[in-house]
């Protein structure tokens, strides 16, 4: 059984809504304060990427279980320009928005599993999971 909820990202306010949803789901799943902060921060980064680069998209949050392990899955999807150089995006300190450039590699470090599927001109889907230890 899994529960999935989602937030559409159009405005800056939707970033706040997405991370609030993520925090609540993380709490319900049983994550401790540090993991709650990790999950909330990861969602904030992903939602901001959608807002900044794709204009609109969606954050989905799902509670998952696999082989007796429980966790949370975040899917960030958009139909934006896509990422042309994935390797560069995953480098620390790379940013096209003038931010700290911590976004993508940071999210990868915060979560346990991280996958990017992107096609220029079609869009990007990022899936990240965090397991309850």
């Amino acid at each position: 059984m899994s529960y999935r909820s989602s937030v559409e990202i159009y405005t800056e306010w939707d970033i706040v809504a997405a991370r609030q949803l993520g925090r609540n789901e993380a709490k319900k799943t049983g994550f401790g304060t540090v993991d709650q902060a990790r999950i909330t921060t990861a969602i904030s980064e992903l939602a901001r990427n959608i807002y900044l680069y794709a204009g609109k998209g969606k954050i989905e949050i799902e509670r998952i279980s696999e082989n007796g392990a429980f966790g949370i899955k975040i899917i960030a999807s958009d139909e934006g320009p896509g990422i042309s150089d994935l390797r560069k995006v995953m480098e620390d300190g790379y940013s096209t928005s003038g931010g700290l450039g911590a976004g993508m590699p940071g999210v990868k470090r915060l979560m346990d599993e991280f996958k990017v599927v992107s096609e220029p001109g079609v869009g990007t889907t990022i899936t990240a999971k965090k397991w309850l230890h």
Partner: peptide, 11 residues
Amino acid sequence: AVAITLIELGI
């Protein structure tokens, strides 16, 4: 929790 996430983010 905030300190740990900041460090992991690379900030």
